[in-house]
């Protein structure tokens, strides 16, 4: 056996207390997980299938539910690539260059995390609303931003802004720029260096960021609720639709829609685990 393993073993033994304490702690953790994660998860599906499979299918194939799915996907399909490009560019800029305003950019990237989503929504109302700064200008051109699809996309982009940048930045910083410098001195162009050297090294970070970004884009409630206007079948996303159904005492419908979002979360979790596993393996 390697000597360092022995040392490690001895150390863990001294760190661990008597078996009772260990099991009590594990038990407490498991109980906590069960109460806060497992029970709600089971509850969502139990309520969703309360009236059987037919009612479940009817709830999620309702035209308004389908419209909500389309809108949720539209918002995610626009927000995620946009934030992917921005996140990569920003992370690269911050990791590789020193420039005035650099720390300001770092702070700005985090802004959507620190601002309450409701406030984020209100900012867009104040900017693009009829009474807002750009309102009259937009009205003259007959353009509608808030209470329409663009506002929902805008709010989604805003709240999912930091995910890719935040995931990629530490990976880039950890890697340093030696290999990129080598590529450049060997005559590779900037683009080529980016595609062949920089990107492959951070790809797992990027993927991880995209997954989180997508999950948030589809699940966002607060900011989207403020700019939505709640026109049924037009500006309601899946989370908003679930709330509407709940308020209409349609609990099966509400939980059926919620179960779709839960499934999305579970798929995200599995993909995320897979990505983590692959990134460690590589």
């Amino acid at each position: 056996m390697h000597p360092s393993t022995l040392v490690l073993r001895r150390r863990t033994r001294t760190l661990s207390g008597p078996a009772v304490v260990r099991w009590a702690l594990i038990g407490a953790a498991l109980l906590f997980l069960a109460v806060f994660l497992l029970v709600p998860l089971v509850a969502v599906f139990t309520f969703a299938f309360q009236k059987g499979w037919a009612a479940y299918v009817a709830a999620i194939s309702d035209p308004e539910a389908l419209a909500a799915m389309r809108l949720t996907l539209t918002a995610a399909v626009i927000a995620v690539p946009l934030n992917l490009v921005f996140g990569l560019a920003a992370a690269w800029l911050i990791a590789r260059f020193r420039f005035p305003g650099r720390s300001l950019l770092v702070t700005l990237i985090d802004l959507p995390f620190s601002v309450s989503p409701v406030i984020a929504g209100l900012i867009f109302v104040l900017l693009f609303g009829r009474q807002g700064w750009l309102g009259p200008w937009l009205a003259e051109r007959n353009l509608q931003v808030i209470f329409a699809v663009p506002g929902i996309v805008l709010a989604t982009v805003f709240v999912t802004f930091p995910f890719v940048a935040r995931e990629v930045l530490p990976v880039m910083q950890a890697q340093g720029s030696d290999e990129e410098e080598a590529a450049l001195t060997l005559g590779a162009s900037g683009w080529r260096t980016f595609w062949r050297v920089t990107l492959p090294k951070v790809k797992w970070g990027v993927l991880y960021g995209v997954i989180l970004c997508n999950a948030r884009a589809m699940g966002e409630f607060g900011a989207v609720s403020v700019v939505s206007g709640h026109v049924r079948g037009i500006t309601t996303t899946l989370p908003l639709h679930a709330e509407i159904l709940y308020n209409e005492y349609d609990f099966v419908g509400a939980f059926a829609v919620a179960s779709l979002l839960t499934l999305l979360a579970l798929v995200t979790l599995v993909v995320k685990k897979y990505v983590e596993w692959r990134s460690v393996a590589s």
């Binding site: 626009i78 007959n142 353009l143 509608q144 931003v145 329409a148 699809v149 996309v153």
Partner: peptide
Amino acid sequence: PLLLSLAACSK
């Protein structure tokens, strides 16, 4: 431009 074109579409 992207958002404006979206706005135009929704209009």
